[in-house]
Amino acid sequence: MSTTERDRLDGRRTLVTGGTRGSGQAVVARLRELGADVWVSARTMPAGYERPDRFVEADTSTPEGTDTLARRIAEGGALDILVHVVGGSTTPPGGFAAATDEQWLTEINLNLLGAVRLDRALLPAMVEAGSGVVLHFGSIQRQMPLHEATLPYAAAKGALRTYSKGLANELAPHGIRVNTISPGGIETEGYEDFLGKLAEASGGTREEAEQGVHAALGGVPLGRFARTEEIADLVGFLVSDRASSIVGAEYVIDGGTVPTV
């Protein structure tokens, strides 16, 4: 098989959750460039979305939303590739005492149980087909939890990593590869807006605001966060035949943020 053939994903039936913004949007674009037949899910379809025939409106943080998505995807048979990008944090600041049971459940449903439920619905068909790739998006916060506002998010991502490793061990004998990507900061439109608000609040520059963010993380040796296209390139590699022996691994893409020895 040639180098080009090992990169290509021609005709492979794919689902990307949370695929309308940021990293998810970049992942969808990259996999389509590689030839995959990509379905996308998100809570709402953006106005003027270019591929409405490959879009499913669904909130995967709820059992009902997951069921809706799974039924629609199952109509076309087994997936070849499943990429769980959707996630995030809405916990208010204030540390552990400010996070209510409701907030904890919100984060766990969004960042852990959504993937668990969708896997449970869609992976049996992969098992029957005898092949497939599953990729979960984690976070470096499973190793570096930020306590002020994102502790429930960090805990859910830690659980997602453990779940992914166990799932990988279970499904590898059936020809299915499960891996995890754990990004650090990512340069998205939302991040740029956040920097603008920080700069405005402090009366400083955007550069100073960014330096403050990096300092809060203990430094980013690369000097910048990852770009969405870099996240997408890693996804493209991990779901391709080039990564055919990578199973149960976690790929950290964080510019060196997490200290290692």
Rank of each mutant, 00 (worst) to 15 (best):
S2D: 15
T3H: 12
T4R: 14
E5C: 14
R8L: 13
R8D: 14
G11V: 08
G11H: 04
G11T: 08
R13Y: 03
L15S: 03
G19T: 05
R21I: 12
S23F: 11
Q25A: 13
V27G: 01
A36M: 07
D37H: 12
W39L: 12
V40P: 01
R43D: 00
P46Q: 10
P46V: 09
G48A: 08
R51P: 15
D53S: 10
R54W: 03
F55C: 09
D59S: 03
D59Q: 03
T60V: 05
S61V: 12
S61D: 13
T62E: 05
E64G: 02
R71K: 15
R72T: 15
I73K: 11
E75K: 15
E75G: 13
L79F: 07
V83E: 01
V83G: 02
H84A: 04
G88D: 13
T90L: 11
G94K: 06
A97P: 14
A97S: 15
E102I: 15
E102H: 13
W104N: 08
E107I: 08
E107C: 07
E107A: 07
N109C: 11
L110V: 08
N111D: 12
N111F: 12
V116D: 03
R117Y: 00
L118P: 13
L118T: 10
L123S: 07
M126C: 10
E128R: 07
E128F: 11
A129P: 02
S131D: 15
S139V: 04
I140M: 09
I140C: 08
T150E: 02
T150F: 02
T150H: 01
L151E: 03
P152Q: 00
A154Q: 00
A159M: 04
L160C: 13
R161C: 13
Y163A: 00
Y163F: 05
S164M: 10
G166F: 02
G166I: 01
I176M: 00
R177E: 07
N179P: 06
N179W: 01
S182R: 07
I186H: 11
G190Q: 10
G190V: 05
G196D: 01
A199K: 07
A199C: 05
A201T: 15
A201Y: 13
G204V: 00
E207T: 03
E207M: 02
E207N: 07
A209G: 09
V213S: 06
H214V: 04
H214M: 05
A215R: 07
G218D: 13
P221R: 09
P221L: 09
P221S: 09
F225H: 15
A226P: 05
E230P: 13
D233H: 15
L234G: 01
F237V: 08
L238D: 00
S240F: 03
S244Q: 15
G248F: 00
G248S: 05
A249P: 10
A249Y: 08
E250A: 10
Y251K: 11
V252A: 08
I253F: 02
D254L: 01
D254Q: 04
G256S: 13
G256W: 10
P259R: 02
T260V: 10
